[in-house]
Design a protein around this nucleic acid. Structure first.
Lengths: 292, 292
DNA sequence: GGTCCAATGAAAAAATCTCTTCAAAAAAAC
DNA sequence: GTTTTTTTGAAGAGATTTTTTCATTGGACC
């Protein structure tokens, strides 16, 4: 049982300052636990007694004992012939799904980023940041969650953001409102949905700028899109991975956000206020009753 | 220049006892240098003054300085294979948001994986794979998209999967249907929503097993959860990152899927058929008309 | 063999670290 | 809102570690 295991096992029973310390120890484990008790305490932002107390609570005879255990672990880790650094989840076998997935994601991320044009990214970010343009967002069956995520954030950052319902029969109503210069963000990953292409074409005809998130094989919508992100989505799974797509989405959100921070900041404060107000409307303790 | 390099560089000028000490340090480097000066001296079979003298001879300000250098090296070694990727998007400047984000995500991934218990992961996967148990999934304002993603996939993989609407007033209806042994997946990332804790507690009281996705500071729901994933969510942004959470979700989906591949495969084929059939019901070319 | 000098470790001094006590602050319970 | 309990860090006592001092050893050179 490693020190890390011990910390995890006791985590629930730790107090606030101790949790803070535990987090600091696990963060950059095990190096963060190597200095003197004073250093460890300072790094974690707690007092030395907290450190002394916690290691005893964890079952060690004292800080020196705790540290000796760390040294032994480190020795074991470092001296193993093929040192375990190439493993992600150190405590899982190399073939565990977590490690295989991590490898795949790393590859996807590296390949995607080596191909993405900074200009493309900046251009897309500028389109989404432009308050003159209305934004429409749509995703497919699987990518709906990503569209939803982008929508939830953009909605806070700026006005005039609309999420398009997945049901194609409702689309004409949205297209009706789009004007030239508006932006349509489409998520279309393989098993390309044919209606997407139609939607993209028609929007383009009306002068709408299209930002497309797709996979490396590129959805047919790419033909009419102003900005295209070709994301690598392979995973050791029957399903494609959306992790890297979400990565790009988040980076884009940040780019849009920072381009108009003043305004966004105001909007977020107002939103806080609204949340607060809506809380006041509720009953003090909203019981979720389980009685049958 | 590493400590090891320094020792080698000075090796010729060392005295007998110092050579003995140097050999001891290089043997099983760098762990042998981690203990107190007393321990190091004992292991090498020399006196403590020899150690103190030599490290000064090597150019360090004293034994603590020497040891601090070792710690830094260790830190770099332990994290390097993964994070030393200095630039992700080769064609973007190192400070471009894409590169800064990539660094942050890699850190999150590394730290999260080093902390996630394989047993915890396998346990959660087993819970979700058990066809005897019904699955309920709920997310907060931001994490709704993740809950949605998990739901969309699990729904294909197995029966009895329900997504809980975000409106707390509808929750009692869901709880009413939960029976002991059922599984409730909760996404609760900071700005923990208080109602989540209530929901978790009540579900737990009814014997429901809770799987929680939260951040490194742990939502209060953790107290009643059977399995907890504490994901690192830091990003160079005003928002938290959900990328690593999605990563875990996808790995979990794959784990659940592969545990019952036979059945899932059948279900997916049936689903294909249903998609096909539903297409036939529609008009041949569903025009998305833009006429106003 | 004798002298000298660098090298070494015992021992003490100085510095630092670890742990305990205790009072204040925070949280929880009432 | 008050009381009780728990948590927390400042301060200091005690232990340990690091450094320095210094006497001894062992080898080099005459």
């Amino acid at each position: 049982m490693t020190v890390s295991d011990v910390i995890h096992a006791h985590f629930a029973t730790l107090t606030r300052a101790e949790k803070q310390l535990a987090a600091s120890l696990l963060d950059n484990y095990p190096v963060s636990g190597l200095g003197s008790i004073t250093t460890v305490a300072e790094n974690a932002g707690v007092s030395t007694p907290t450190v002394a107390r916690m290691v005893q609570k964890l079952g060690f005879r004292g800080f020196p004992d705790f540290q000796a255990r760390l040294h032994h672990e480190l020795e074991a880790t470092l001296s193993s012939p093929i040192s375990k650094h190439d493993r992600w989840a150190a405590n899982a076998p190399g073939t565990h799904i977590l490690n295989r997935f991590a490898d795949a994601i790393m590859n996807n991320l590296r390949q995607t980023l080596s191909q993405v044009e900074t200009a493309e990214f900046n251009g897309a970010s500028a389109l989404l940041a432009d308050r003159q343009r209305s934004i429409y967002i749509i995703g497919g069956r699987i990518t709906k969650a990503l569209a939803d995520y982008l929508f939830t954030h953009l909605q806070v950052i700026r006005p005039h953001v609309t999420q398009i319902a997945s049901n194609p029969s409702s689309w004409p109503h949205y297209v009706l409102n789009m004007k030239a210069g508006d932006v349509l963000v489409i998520f279309d990953i393989r098993r390309y949905e044919q209606e997407m292409e139609t939607l993209g074409r028609i929007a383009r005809e009306r002068g709408v700028e299209i930002v497309l998130f797709t996979d490396q094989w590129a959805s047919p919508v790419a033909k009419v899109a102003a900005k295209v992100f070709r994301v690598h989505i392979e995973a050791p799974s029957a399903w494609d991975s959306s992790v890297v797509t979400l990565f790009i989405v988040e980076a884009l959100i940040e780019a849009v956000q920072s381009s108009g921070w003043e305004e966004t900041s105001d909007r977020m404060k107002t939103l806080e206020g609204l949340f607060e107000a809506s809380r006041l409307f509720r009953k003090p303790r909203p019981e979720v009753s389980g009685k049958s």
